[in-house]
Lab assay of single mutants.
Amino acid sequence: MLDDRARMEAAKKEKVEQILAEFQLQEEDLKKVMRRMQKEMDRGLRLETHEEASVKMLPTYVRSTPEGSEVGDFLSLDLGGTNFRVMLVKVGEGEEGQWSVKTKHQMYSIPEDAMTGTAEMLFDYISECISDFLDKHQMKHKKLPLGFTFSFPVRHEDIDKGILLNWTKGFKASGAEGNNVVGLLRDAIKRRGDFEMDVVAMVNDTVATMISCYYEDHQCEVGMIVGTGCNACYMEEMQNVELVEGDEGRMCVNTEWGAFGDSGELDEFLLEYDRLVDESSANPGQQLYEKLIGGKYMGELVRLVLLRLVDENLLFHGEASEQLRTRGAFETRFVSQVESDTGDRKQIYNILSTLGLRPSTTDCDIVRRACESVSTRAAHMCSAGLAGVINRMRESRSEDVMRITVGVDGSVYKLHPSFKERFHASVRRLTPSCEITFIESEEGSGRGAALVSAVACKKACMLGQ
C-alpha cells in the first residue's frame, strides 16, 4: 500500500517536472537572447534605426563620474514606483581627507489618484512632500541643488532636461508624456511658492545606482535594477552614441532593455503563462523582457503555473481556492519566502493557508518547484541581457580580458534567497573573457542622484555659470 502511494507521488512529481521543464533555458538559448539583445542595442544607438529599435539606448548626458572633490548639501528625489523618497545628502571631506556622503531620508507613498490623475496632481503632491521634508529638517530658507531620480523612459536633451516617452509600472498621470519632466517639477514648486529649489540633474535609477557604486569602486561602469521592473545602464564610447554629437570619451546610456521583445525577438521563448500575464497587464505587448524578470510579474506567473497544475490534477487534489483564482493573489514576496523555507515546509504551508488552501507535504514541495522554475528562468533571462552589455563593452574597448564592476539594486536581487547566485553564475558562463565584480548599492537611487548633481554643480562652477 505504502509502495503504491510512494509510486503515485513519484509519478505525480515526474509529471510536474515535465510541465515545469518549459521554463528551462539551455545555454544556447541564452546565447541567442544575448546576441539578439546586442543587435537591438546597436539599432538603438544608431541614428537611422533608433526610432524602430525596441531597446532605445537613451543617452543620459552623464559623462563624468564623481571624483571626490564636490562638497555641499544636496536634496535628492526618487520616483520610480508607488513609494517616493526625499533625501538630504551631505557631501563633504571625511576623516583623513576621505570623501564622505551622509544621508537623511523619508519615504512617502503615492496615492492612487496622483498616479493615475493628471501630471499637475502628481507633481503638486511631490512638491508637497518636499515642503514637508524641508519643514522637518528646518531647511526651507536654503535654496538647495536638487537631483531627481526618475525611473521611467526619458529622452534627455541635457542633464536637466528630459522628455517622458511613456509611463510604465502602473503610472498613468495624463499630460506628462511628451513633456519635460524637470519643467513639470519646477512648475509645481513655483505653484507652491513656499520654498526654492535648483533642479540641476535628472537621472534614471540605473544611472543613480551606477554612480553610487562608483563611489565604492571606481571600476563600476554598469548599473542595473532588478526590482519591480528590470533595466540597466553602462558607459558607452561616445563615438557609438549617434544621437549625441561628439566622439570623445564616454557617456552613460540608459538601455531601457525592459522593452526588448516588443518587436518579436522573444516570441519563441514566451510561454502561455507569459501571454496571460501580458494580456492582463496595463501595457499589453510592451516591456516583454521586463515581464519575464521583474517583481511586478513574478508572483503572478507562479500563480498561473499553480492553476495549470491544479487543472492537471497534480496539486491540491485538483481544487483551487477562490483566493488562488484571484489575479495578483500570489505576491512576489511569497516566491522569495517559499524558496527561503528551511525544509520543514512550515513557511510554505503558512503562505498557502493564507490563500485558503490546506496543502499536503507533496503540495508544498511542488509549489516550491514552481517558484524555483519561474525565478530561475528570470535570473537566466536577466543574465543574457547583462552578458550582452558586458561583452559589447569588452569588444568596443578591444580588451582581451576586461575587469568590470556592476552596481545592482532592486528588491528581487536583494531579497530573493537564490536569485543573485543563479544570476551571477549564468552571467559568468556567458562572459568567459571578463572578470566581473557585483556590488549592491546602498540607498543607491538617492545618493547617486545627489552625486550626479554634485558633478553638475562642479561643472557649472568651472564653466562660470
Rank of each mutant, 00 (worst) to 15 (best):
L2F: 10
D3A: 03
R5A: 10
A6F: 15
R7C: 14
E9R: 10
E9F: 06
A10P: 13
K12W: 08
K13Q: 13
E17V: 08
L20G: 10
E22G: 00
F23L: 13
D29H: 02
V33W: 01
M34Y: 09
M34S: 05
Q38S: 07
R43T: 14
L47S: 15
L47I: 15
H50R: 06
E51K: 15
E51G: 09
E52M: 10
A53D: 02
S54E: 11
M57D: 00
M57P: 07
Y61F: 06
S64A: 12
S64F: 12
T65K: 04
G68N: 07
V71F: 03
D73G: 01
F74V: 02
F74E: 00
L75S: 01
S76P: 01
S76C: 04
S76F: 03
L79F: 13
L79V: 09
T82L: 12
F84C: 07
M87A: 06
M87D: 02
L88K: 03
L88F: 05
L88P: 00
V91M: 04
E93M: 12
S100A: 10
S100Q: 09
K102Y: 13
H105P: 06
H105Q: 03
M107A: 09
S109P: 10
P111A: 03
M115R: 10
M115C: 13
G117V: 09
G117T: 07
L122W: 12
L122D: 12
I126W: 05
S127V: 11
S127A: 10
S131Y: 05
H137K: 11
Q138K: 12
M139C: 05
M139Q: 11
K140H: 08
K140Q: 07
H141M: 07
K143T: 01
F148E: 05
F150G: 09
S151G: 08
F152S: 13
F152R: 12
F152E: 13
P153N: 11
P153R: 10
V154K: 09
V154A: 05
D158A: 12
I159E: 14
I159H: 06
K161L: 15
G162W: 13
G170S: 14
K172V: 05
A173R: 03
G175S: 05
G175R: 05
E177G: 07
G178K: 15
G183Q: 06
K190V: 14
R192F: 11
D198V: 00
V199C: 05
V199W: 09
V200N: 07
V200R: 01
D205R: 06
T206W: 03
V207C: 06
M210H: 03
Y214W: 13
Y215R: 00
D217S: 03
D217E: 05
Q219L: 07
Q219I: 15
I225N: 02
G227S: 03
G227L: 01
Y234S: 01
Y234A: 00
Y234T: 06
N240R: 02
N240I: 01
N240F: 05
N240H: 01
V241F: 01
E242I: 00
E242H: 10
L243W: 03
V244W: 00
E245I: 02
E245N: 06
E245H: 07
G246D: 03
C252F: 00
V253G: 00
E256D: 12
A259G: 07
F260H: 02
G261L: 09
S263R: 08
G264M: 06
E265D: 09
L270A: 03
L271A: 01
R275W: 12
S281I: 10
K291S: 11
I293L: 14
I293D: 11
G295F: 15
Y297S: 10
G299R: 02
G299C: 05
L306F: 05
R308C: 01
R308L: 05
L309T: 06
V310G: 05
E312D: 05
L315D: 00
L315I: 13
A320G: 08
E322D: 10
R325Q: 12
T326Q: 14
R327Y: 10
G328S: 09
F330S: 01
E331V: 12
R333G: 14
V335A: 08
S336Y: 11
Q337N: 04
V338A: 01
V338S: 00
S340K: 10
S340T: 04
D341N: 02
D344T: 02
I348S: 03
I351V: 04
I351M: 01
I351Y: 01
I351E: 01
I351C: 04
L352R: 01
L352G: 01
L352A: 01
T354Y: 09
T354I: 05
R358L: 05
T361W: 05
D363E: 04
C364T: 09
D365I: 05
R368M: 07
S373A: 06
S373M: 10
S375Q: 08
S375V: 09
A379D: 02
H380W: 08
G385L: 09
A387S: 08
A387W: 01
V389G: 01
I390G: 01
R392H: 13
M393R: 12
R394F: 09
E399V: 05
V401C: 07
M402L: 08
I404G: 05
T405F: 01
V406W: 00
V408N: 08
V408L: 09
V408C: 07
V412H: 11
E421D: 07
R422V: 14
R422K: 13
F423V: 09
H424I: 09
A425T: 15
S426Q: 14
R428C: 12
L430R: 06
S433V: 08
E442G: 12
E442I: 05
E443D: 12
S445T: 10
G448W: 06
A449G: 13
A449D: 10
L451Q: 15
V452H: 07
A454C: 13
K458C: 10
A460K: 12
C461Y: 10
M462S: 14
M462I: 07
L463R: 11
